[in-house]
Design a protein around this nucleic acid. Structure first.
Lengths: 193, 193
DNA sequence: AGCGTTGGCCAACACTTGTTGGCAACCATG
DNA sequence: CATGGTTGCCAACAAGTGTTGGCCAACGCT
């Protein structure tokens, strides 16, 4: 099964539908969450038979795992104007969220599924906390500071992209950066209050 | 059917199981979200037959509506040391969240169900925005300021009570007040950045 | 006692879900 | 041409869902 020693005869057209399924899955998961996004609905969106989804991705969990891959490249961020890191982070997360809607899906699912929740937590553990340790004072406070940053960023994502509060959706990118930037900056670098 | 012109003969013992069902429903909804919290599971928790749930609450939606009633009495808050309103609000929300877990249920459900999302939004509309209008400068900015406060508070609730990030759970009540208080204060009262 | 009302359970319905196996068409290679 | 693997669809399965109606036991009344 897909174990190919010499599979170079031009991409089979299955790859096309494979991608189509994945795209449909992303949209559905983002829009409806895990349970309400049924395989049948996803297959219908992709103009494909439900059984094909199973063939390509094994089961629903596998499809979800494939649909939502997350890695905000935090280590690649410019830390340099150190008093600007708050704004930089907010901008980074905003583009991240607007470019791929899978993040919304991940939040919707994480609200009920522990596995997805842990997946979000891994970003905190492996990227945000190290960043906080690197950029802020008193390294042993890094987890707390990072958690606060996460709550600020995810809170905005929640009200804006998941719950879609009109007042939150109405905020412009610049407003958000101007308001949230200093908050993140303080959470990361300010001395303990 | 239940159309009673004269139903005053002392609380029937059905009220007891009625309450038992409601309690079980709250826990299940909070723990599992709307779809995964099945009527059968709730009934099992309440040591009752599933059909009783239907009899008492009509249908699943009705049960959820009854289980999750939310009204943070924001208007009743002391606004007075006006430079303390940030801390006051954070403390208020923390106790609110710790006293009744239905709020966690509401967030879990709001992540996928638009009706529940709107229900959360109503709190913003009817209580937070008026508060922001009353306490902050430039009343026409009240929606934006209130939305930012909501994102901060809900973000913490998300990471702490829903996703249960260890780093967020580890925060003490005082730490949270000390960190989030100034943030809310700034969102509400600071001049436009 | 007999009566109706109430609180409760059981079994079943109709439906949707994820998932599986069999079968028809294609397409490149021998 | 034949062959074998790929790509796809159809029909069905078993399990779980919300929901309904009928039946039984206990209680309060006259």
């Amino acid at each position: 099964m897909t174990g190919s020693t010499e599979n170079q005869r031009a991409a089979p057209r299955s790859d096309a539908t494979r991608a189509t399924i994945l795209a449909a899955a992303r949209e559905r998961f983002a829009a409806d969450g895990y349970e309400k996004a049924t395989i049948r609905a996803i297959a219908r969106d992709a103009n494909i038979d439900p059984s094909m989804v199973m063939r390509y991705y094994g089961n629903k969990a596998g499809l979800f795992a494939a649909a939502v891959s997350i890695d905000p490249q935090l280590p690649g961020l410019p830390v340099e104007p150190r008093e600007e890191i708050g704004r930089t982070l907010v901008r980074h997360f905003l583009t991240l969220w607007e470019e791929n809607g899978e993040l919304t899906a991940l939040m919707r699912v994480g609200a009920t599924d522990p596995a997805a929740a842990d997946r979000m937590g891994s970003v905190l553990r492996e990227q945000l906390i190290p960043l906080a340790r690197h950029v802020g004072p008193e390294p042993e406070q890094a987890p707390a500071r990072a958690a606060l940053c996460a709550s600020a960023v995810l809170g905005l994502a929640l009200t804006r992209y998941v719950l879609r509060f009109p007042a939150s959706v109405a905020l412009s990118r610049e407003e958000i950066v101007d308001w949230l930037g200093p908050t993140i900056q303080r959470y990361l670098t300010a001395p303990t209050p």
